[in-house]
């Protein structure tokens, strides 16, 4: 696939246009990446696609090889793997808190001890998620801006 960048004047709308022979998985990934850079992600629910603002996402979780994104009240499936989301959303205050979870730090209300060296993050929705002890060091560094 050739990549072409065309500069346009301020009066014209900025646009990413993908011209392809077929809408493959690769094309969908490129489109999703562009959306994520603009602060939006595509989620699937009941065979329908939804555009979700990244700032509304509480966390991503990988369950049985599938990745789900959780907002305050809804759950959507996303095509991304946790590690892909981790690198895409690092600048948007998302942090890996366990092997299967990527958490939006801005959605944490408080942090509690959860026994055995682990911690539990109480989210703004009231839900509790476990911060695995492997990732506590990373959490401390992220909160301190290190």
């Amino acid at each position: 696939m050739d990549v072409e960048i065309e500069q346009v004047g301020r009066e014209k709308k900025e646009q990413v246009l993908i011209r392809c022979h077929a809408v493959t998985e690769e094309v969908r990934e490129i489109a999703a990446f562009v959306k994520s850079r603009q602060g939006r992600l595509t989620g699937m629910k009941d065979s329908r696609q939804y555009e979700i603002a990244v700032s509304d996402i509480y966390y991503f979780e990988s369950v049985d090889g599938k990745t789900f994104l959780y907002t305050k009240e809804q759950v959507y499936e996303t095509a991304y793997r946790i590690y892909e989301l981790e690198s895409m959303l690092r600048s948007k205050n998302f942090l890996r808190v366990s092997k299967s979870m990527l958490l939006n730090l801005m959605k944490i209300r408080s942090i509690q001890s959860a026994l055995n060296g682990r911690f539990a993050a109480v989210l703004l929705s009231g839900e509790e998620v476990i911060i695995s002890r492997n990732y506590v060091k990373g959490l401390k560094a992220a909160l301190r801006g290190e």
């Binding site: 730090l105 408080s110 942090i111 509690q112 001890s113 959490l139 992220a142 909160l143 301190r144 801006g145």
Partner: peptide, 14 residues
Amino acid sequence: SAEARVLNEDLQRF
């Protein structure tokens, strides 16, 4: 619990 208190302070600042 003491560690959690420090984390909450860091979270507040963050």
